[in-house]
Simulated scan of single mutants.
Amino acid sequence: MIPEHETFHGTWPYLARYCKAAGFSQHYIDEGPRKGAENLVLLHGEPTWGYLWRHLIGPLSRRHRVVVPDHMGFGKSETPADRSYLAVEHVDNLEKLLVDELDLHDITLVLHDWGGPIGTGFALRHPDRVRRMMATNTVLPLGMPGYPELMAGNMRDSSWFRWAQAAQADGTLESLLGNAGNTVTHLMLALQTIGRPEIVTPTWIRAYSAHFTDRAQCRGVIRFPQQLVAPDPDAPTPQPPDAEAVTALRGKPALLVQGMRDTALLPGYTMPAFHLGYPSAPIIELPEAGHFTSEDAPETLLALLALFLQTT
């Protein structure tokens, strides 16, 4: 895990907080006013951590309470050896933080990559605590007909998933991702796409690779793709979401902001998948942004989120 006081040359100036409610040390930041403010929860995915949202946190926290957790095995969170690192376990961890530790209500979820399924899993358990959902280059799995077929198409055509499936087949996936300290930023550039490669500085590289000091610290980054390309036959079968919870979530405001140069979660699949759950909700296309919209277009993403909050 990244040391508590590491700021990466001042680019991550936020006070580290830790929650032990899920049985490990989960890092999060909690910035901004507590009373009378919107509660915003920003969730990262693979292979990032809260640093992904650094450009948004400062401006948002002037008026809103902004909570940004690091998933287990990422960023400043611990990487325990005795966990499965399946998505449902990350949902459990998020529930412990947001409900048991912080008791948040009226939450606006801002979701990227695996943050989408994890945040949606939380929202399905607690639709009464969620006010609205903003997705960016992710999916919101609500059990809608046609969703599995769209995800199968993305698995087939995505550069990231084609690579992951080939690496799993030839036995190199775990070794490549187990060396994420040296490979992770290359994978972000080559297989998920950074639309503005000029942002990739030595500090940026160190921020995204610093957690992965050895194979033991890479459990999280290995398991996210592995559970899709090599699912464990002994893992519990996911149950269909509760119909009443799905109906409740579909009645809430939602927005998708899609980086159109994404080569991991392809717009041709993620946008129709979003519309299955939210047929009337807006989709904003960012033509020059890749998978990481908060890196490629942070000012635009911030403005869209502010507008979303004001108009819903």
Rank of each mutant, 00 (worst) to 15 (best):
60 L>W: 05
4 E>R: 14
199 I>L: 13
28 Y>A: 03
26 Q>L: 13
182 N>F: 10
217 Q>S: 15
133 M>L: 14
24 F>I: 04
26 Q>M: 15
60 L>T: 01
152 A>K: 14
238 P>A: 06
156 R>S: 12
296 D>R: 05
274 F>T: 02
132 R>S: 15
40 L>K: 04
260 M>D: 12
308 F>G: 00
122 F>D: 05
306 A>S: 15
223 R>N: 14
174 E>N: 13
143 G>E: 11
5 H>P: 00
149 E>H: 07
232 D>H: 03
11 T>L: 13
86 L>W: 13
259 G>N: 02
202 P>D: 15
8 F>Y: 12
256 L>G: 03
74 F>P: 04
291 H>A: 05
233 P>N: 07
182 N>R: 15
35 K>P: 01
242 D>K: 07
24 F>M: 11
40 L>T: 02
157 D>V: 04
283 I>W: 00
260 M>F: 03
13 P>N: 12
32 G>Q: 03
140 L>E: 07
208 Y>S: 10
147 Y>K: 05
21 A>M: 00
251 G>E: 06
98 L>Y: 00
250 R>L: 04
172 T>G: 06
221 V>P: 09
174 E>Q: 13
287 P>Y: 05
91 V>A: 06
214 D>Y: 02
165 Q>A: 13
112 H>W: 09
209 S>L: 11
10 G>A: 10
275 H>P: 01
132 R>M: 09
149 E>C: 09
151 M>K: 05
83 R>L: 09
135 A>F: 13
129 R>C: 01
94 L>R: 01
203 T>W: 11
226 Q>N: 11
129 R>L: 02
118 I>F: 02
16 A>P: 04
107 I>N: 05
227 Q>F: 00
34 R>V: 09
222 I>M: 12
181 G>D: 08
211 H>R: 11
238 P>T: 06
311 T>S: 14
270 T>Y: 03
165 Q>E: 12
93 N>M: 02
281 A>W: 00
186 H>W: 13
311 T>P: 00
252 K>R: 14
200 V>R: 04
281 A>I: 01
180 A>K: 06
75 G>T: 04
101 E>N: 03
20 K>M: 14
86 L>H: 14
75 G>L: 08
309 L>T: 01
160 W>N: 04
166 A>T: 09
18 Y>K: 02
235 A>W: 10
149 E>R: 12
103 D>T: 01
4 E>N: 12
44 H>S: 11
288 E>I: 01
83 R>E: 08
105 H>V: 05
28 Y>E: 03
254 A>Y: 04
149 E>N: 10
72 M>Q: 14
67 V>M: 05
169 A>Y: 09
198 E>N: 09
2 I>Q: 04
19 C>Q: 00
53 W>G: 06
213 T>Q: 15
75 G>C: 06
194 I>C: 03
295 E>T: 03
92 D>I: 02
17 R>C: 10
176 L>Q: 15
294 S>A: 15
26 Q>S: 07
278 Y>I: 01
203 T>V: 15
204 W>A: 12
234 D>W: 11
78 E>A: 11
259 G>E: 00
53 W>M: 03
76 K>R: 15
167 A>N: 07
17 R>E: 12
174 E>F: 01
42 L>Q: 07
151 M>E: 10
4 E>V: 12
151 M>R: 08
150 L>D: 11
55 H>E: 14
7 T>K: 06
59 P>I: 02
80 P>G: 08
288 E>H: 12
252 K>N: 07
96 K>L: 05
8 F>D: 03
146 G>Y: 10
225 P>L: 02
52 L>W: 07
239 Q>T: 15
